[in-house]
Design a binder for these strands. Sequence first.
DNA 1: ATATCATGGTTATATTATAACCTTAGAGGG
DNA 2: CCCTCTAAGGTTATAATATAACCATGATAT
Lengths: 150, 150
Amino acid sequence: MPTHCKACENTDSATKTLTDRGVRLTVLRRDVLQELHHAKQPLGAYDLFDNLKSAGKASAPPAVYRVLDFLVEQGLAHKLRSLSAYAACCLGPHAHQAIFLICRSCGTVNECDIAAPKSLTDTAKSTGFRIEDITIEAMGTCRSCTEAPN
Amino acid sequence: MPTHCKACENTDSATKTLTDRGVRLTVLRRDVLQELHHAKQPLGAYDLFDNLKSAGKASAPPAVYRVLDFLVEQGLAHKLRSLSAYAACCLGPHAHQAIFLICRSCGTVNECDIAAPKSLTDTAKSTGFRIEDITIEAMGTCRSCTEAPN
DNA sequence: ATATCATGGTTATATTATAACCTTAGAGGG
DNA sequence: CCCTCTAAGGTTATAATATAACCATGATAT
Ligand SMILES: [Zn+2]
Ligand SMILES: [Zn+2]
Ligand SMILES: [Zn+2]
Ligand SMILES: [Zn+2]
């Protein structure tokens, strides 16, 4: 039976991807991913922990951190360093370079799929630096918060 | 009398900038900036605290965090979110967009002065997002660590 | 002088993250 | 089916990072 919920569909799709990869998607992992997909904003590890704990689904912080590490590794979630929080990836589960537009006012995050900036890759190349992982986050104010400030 | 030390000269220069701005550069602020300039790598707030404490120059963590906030605000230091650490700015004390190449192996950080990537500013513009602050950090391996791995 | 404000001291605590060790539960071979 | 191996997660404790709240001091301005 279909879920009729976009977030759940995203979770299902991610589930399938992991299965195809031969990686195990356990109940706990699925629950965390689900939480992230349903959230309107990035969630802190302890937000997740509290939610899962209330639902009798998580035991202690290390479990949550392990799952988050796993999801990030698998490309299903991202860590937003400016917020110390985590968000479900809303692009494909493939490795990709993403940037995040984070609204200070409403907390929403917009994940944009753009290539690594040429200026950055050029600089790295010219100094012999091998890039393994890029973080790009822009803090600011989204359109709706600009137009209808609180 | 001249200092004959590049890091101290940088600190002096920053000092002058602040004075010109009519902002107070207190002893504590100068000491923190000095530490940052002399460090080979970014320093955590508690690294700084421990150092200053040993020298009888700092009382407790909040003092250090306040100074760090001040220095970042003034453009004399940067917070490296990937490391939860702070580094003296090695470009001008003007507001600038910087990117950081961070070597996982030796911990050195290279601050590069490049313009905000057009792809990013374009994306923001097209969605009506007003960017106030950009974080760009690349983790990887620097040339010398690639050539002479430990 | 005295009011005002920026700075920093002090104490306590919040928030984020990991170490270390043990138990359970699946997968896969025999 | 049983055994072995390993990935996953439970559990406890603690590390590392950061801030709240309140007070004391010292610069600045009128
Ligand atoms: Zn993504
Ligand atoms: Zn907003
Ligand atoms: Zn800088
Ligand atoms: Zn290196």
